[in-house]
Design a protein around this nucleic acid. Structure first.
Length: 153
DNA sequence: GCCAACGTTGGC
DNA sequence: GCCAACGTTGGC
């Protein structure tokens, strides 16, 4: 079992939207490394840290789990979608996704709090220049995040 | 709005 | 296959 941090812009899709919807396809990822994580490494039941990015208070806002195997992202075939990819075909889809299901909304563990925590300094999301929207989280990092949040999965 | 960092594209 | 130019991300 692995753990992942997945970024979402709350103006697009927030933890409150996940509380409402319970389970969503993680559409719109258009980065090959992030796609490969979903396609090749994610397993049903993997823990997910739901992270708010590009917003007034970035940080971890909730806990979730991977709830499906990888399958094609429908938005790549939708000409009206901003995620449309004319080079992708149904026979050979370029972009894959997994479903993500809510575990619980948590208090916000802000980016500032995360930067202050020595136990989190190895997290990829905190490394300089990191822009990847999906990053692996080590068991030790997960444990430290849960401790700071005062909760468990 | 700025800008550093990084990914992608395309000419050669 | 190199690499300059361009586009995007995302914190501030």
């Amino acid at each position: 079992m692995s753990c992942w941090l997945m970024k979402s812009e709350p103006e697009e899709f927030s933890i409150d939207d996940l509380v409402r919807d319970k389970k969503v396809p993680w559409f719109g990822v258009r980065n090959y490394l992030a796609r490969n994580y979903m396609r090749d490494q994610m397993k049903v039941g993997d823990e997910v840290l739901f992270y708010h990015s590009s917003c007034p208070e970035p940080g971890i806002a909730g806990l979730a789990r991977v709830s499906s195997a990888a399958y094609p992202d429908e938005t790549q075939f939708d000409k009206k979608s901003k995620y449309f990819d004319e080079k992708s075909t149904r026979e050979n889809p370029r972009w894959m996704l997994v479903d993500v299901a809510l575990v619980k909304k948590t208090k916000l563990l802000s980016l500032a709090d995360m930067r202050e925590a020595k136990s989190l300094e190895s997290m990829i999301v905190l490394q300089k220049g990191n822009r990847l929207s999906i990053t692996p989280v080590t068991p030790a990092e997960l444990k430290a995040v849960l401790k700071l949040l005062g909760t468990t999965f």
